[in-house]
Design a protein around this nucleic acid. Structure first.
Lengths: 110, 110
DNA sequence: GAACTATATCGTAATATTGCAATATAATAA
DNA sequence: TTATTATATTGCAATATTACGATATAGTTC
């Protein structure tokens, strides 16, 4: 016991929870916000932006990448990490949808 | 070591990551979707909807509640759980914002 | 009151995540 | 080639999460 029973849930539920999970750490939100704030994509100084050691940052970047939230391309010596708009669009869509459905509901609730 | 260094990050980053983290499990997404699908709020049969034991479901509900994503009100013997629209609105807003900012950017990226 | 129903909490085992020092890899610069 | 720089991987300790049986709590019904 202890392992998440992901197989028991639908692909759709797993897909959304994977995206959400990747954003479920302040360091990873900070990374997303940093990528959003820099205009050109001279990333790599993300490490300097965060109060964490380089291996830890690398690990967080890997998780964001695995979840499909960011993508990285090699830029000579450094690596250029960017937000993947598709993942953001998927999340935006998801919450828009929930919001709409909540709006349609009669408020005979809690 | 091993504990998340949440204190090192801004309140805003922690606030969003807390919401995202709460949605970072397929069971909790399934709960949200179930709450969304039932019209009147005769909850309590969430346990029957999920492939998990009652204590586990109760724990997931607690986490959603702690994060502010759902609220519950006692309805006689049972409990009526509902989505908290404010939390959804916050998330919707957050991703809308990111999406907009990404749109404004010149695509000199990855 | 006792029995029943719905939910929460406790305790604990299995697993996952977080963080970092040390080290590896790979490109660039000297 | 030998630094130097940028990033990734390994290994491991600390902590957190997930899951559930057993049990507690609290309301309902009889």
């Amino acid at each position: 016991m202890g392992a998440t029973k992901s197989e028991q849930f639908t692909k759709k539920h797993n897909a959304i929870s994977t995206l959400a999970k990747a954003l479920g750490h302040p360091a990873r939100i900070a990374i997303i916000e940093y990528l959003l704030s820099v205009d050109t994509c001279i990333c790599g100084d993300i490490v300097n932006e965060l109060p964490l050691a380089q291996p830890t940052v690398s690990q967080h970047l890997k998780e964001l990448k695995n979840a499909g939230l960011i993508k990285g391309s090699i830029e000579g010596n450094a690596i250029c990490y960017c937000i993947d708009e598709k993942a953001i669009a998927r999340l935006q869509n998801y919450f828009d949808n929930i919001s709409n459905k909540l709006g349609e509901k009669k408020n005979n609730c809690c």
